[in-house]
Amino acid sequence: MQAPQSVQPAHREANHHRVHKLKGKAVDLLYALFRYALVIGISFIIIYPLLMKFSIAFKDKADIYNPTIYMIPVHYTMDNIRMAMQILDYFPLLGNTLLFVVVTTVLTTASCALAGYGFARFSFPGSNILFALVILTLLVPTSTLMVPMYLHFRSFDIMGIIHLFTGRSGINLLNTYWPSMITSATAIGLKAGLFIYIFRQFFKGMPKEIEEAALIDGAGGVKTFLRIMLPNAVSPMITVILFCFVWQYNDTFFTSLFMSEIALMPTKVSSLAAQANALLPGLLGVGGGSGVKADPNHVAMIIDTGILLAILPLITLYMVVQRYFVESVERSGIIG
């Protein structure tokens, strides 16, 4: 009698354990399902507009008024893409924009890396105050500086030098690439304070011994920076380059302020609707004139296609680099 009595509780214990384990598994499974539902739901909200644009880009005019069509068109066509490309003047525009964005990105990254290194590794009188001013440049709304900057570039002159030599009151730099070039080369452009901050945090985290070793080996400060610090700073560089590229590409504020007459992607896209309205009848071959008005649904289709064309380069870039994206942000030391 003794033996079964001791077996019974042990058996019950095991049973209890099994039930507990089963319960745990069920909860885990439910949680996993819940998580998938959430992730898929949110992802759908994010990519839905994109999917819609893809569907519209290939949709034929004939399908506009067919209410049974959802997403997948019945008649396929490349007309929308061709027309949107014609209205945007796509390839010259894209080349122009990419050149502009690449140059400003390179300049911004270079100047911000220099400043970040300077703030991270050297102590000179007032360096902390100056770094506080870097943060200040981020916090002041851009609209505060808008008018003075505009007037400044309208008659650009540094301390009266140009006035001294030519007698004119400065050069008009509006509607040239110079305003953006100058602001990016001097690390004061679009959210440059953030980039300086990222570089500073990263360089601060690097071991000091590396520099000391380089110094003993006879490398100067500039050489140390170029040969040793910069090649190690790949992750903050990727972060900064990506963000800078994307923000420059999408920026309407500074482009419409300084370069409203230069054909760049953001300004062109924001005026796409008016352009499409005006040019569509001509492209369809029904002739221009004030009496002719394009079908608003068709115009909307062209606009959607145009937007898709505008963001396509960014999406392509993102697909290539997105693997490095999160990793580089993790390693770049934003989180100090």
């Binding site: 949110i42 992802s43 994010i46 990519i47 994109l50 963000f243 994307v246 999408n250 920026d251 309407t252 504020f253 992607m265 953001p266 300004t267 896209v269 924001s270 796409l272 609707a273 008016a274 309205n277 608003p296 649904n297 115009v299 909307a300 606009i303 959607d304 145009g306 937007i307 505008a310 963001i311 960014l314 999406i315 993102y318 697909m319 997105q322 994206f325 999160v326």
Partner: peptide, 25 residues
């Protein structure tokens, strides 16, 4: 990858164009 897509697509130019597309409609 999908969750970070908005970082790239958040553009005033696009929202302006979309809004004017809607006004058309």
């Amino acid at each position: 990858a999908i969750f970070f897509l908005p970082v790239i697509l958040a553009s005033n130019a696009i929202s302006a164009a979309e809004a004017s597309g809607l006004i058309n409609l």
